[in-house]
Amino acid sequence: MVKKKSLLRSAGFTVFILFIVFFVLFPFIQMLSMSLKYQWDWGNPSLIPRKINLEAYKELLNIDQAEKNLPDSIKNLLKNTPDLTKAQKNKIIARYKDTGSVFPFFEYFKNSFILAFTAAAFSGIIAIFGAYSFSRMQYRGRSTIQRSVLFVYMFGGIILLIPLYRIFVRLGFLSTPTGTFLTLIVIYMVQTLPVSLYMLGNYFRTIPYSIEEAAMIEGLGRFSIIVKIIVPLSLAAIMTVFIYSFMIAWNEYLFASIFLKGFKNLYTLPMGLMALFTSKNAIWDRIMAASMLTAIPVIALFMVVQKNLTSGLSEGGVKE
């Protein structure tokens, strides 16, 4: 009787776990499945495509696109003009190779990457010194600073969007591509700075103070202590904070959508995807493949730092 009950219980538990996994993964599976389906297969509710279609990925990653895009007239020209050298032929083909007009994945990827990388790097460097200052040094006003950093959590993007837009329009930064790009870097840096300060501060407090004292006796100043001792000891935490900031900037849409509106060649991946979705080129397999390609770098990065990030996040939120 007791055994039967516990058997039932563990079966129920297994079903529950399976349900959670299914709930969590279903949208991802749906995305993968659609990105691999042919258009005639869309109505088929099964998640397994009847026939695998890699066309959308090939198109986005610009693989084997040369032949497909060649107009018939050019194909004939190439076939019927034997005295063209190979180099000349390739040159002609190369002109049609670019499928960038539909969704220039690499360009958007590059923009997103430069933005996110620069913003995360600057935010990380500034945060290392700032976090060291308020977690390790004694001075008046320290705890006020520490508390106001947390206060910044309260402000959502939208309350900052209007004034920042206004300020940067007035400064004239938004009229040139370079200015716009730099503005966005600065804005992303600000948005990730409070989190970076907070997480790094928490980490620095776990480093035993005696190490620093020993270094001070050796005659090292504060600055050398940070560079030579604190940074090497907290590389994992710094990396985690960097990747967390990188992910925030990589995913950002609100500011990008307003600031980058006029500069199509500066579009980030989220901007580009949204533009693709509302354009006439919107077909499900292309959108889903582009979604997959946008998600994969972030998920890969997350896998790298998973252990540190999860403990960092829970220490950041749970204060006791």
Partner: peptide
């Protein structure tokens, strides 16, 4: 696996939900 929805970019999962 449970953490995936939280880390995936919003823009890349909304289309799956729309579908």
């Amino acid at each position: 696996l449970i953490l995936l929805p939280y880390v995936a970019p919003v823009i890349s999962v909304v289309f799956a939900w729309q579908f």
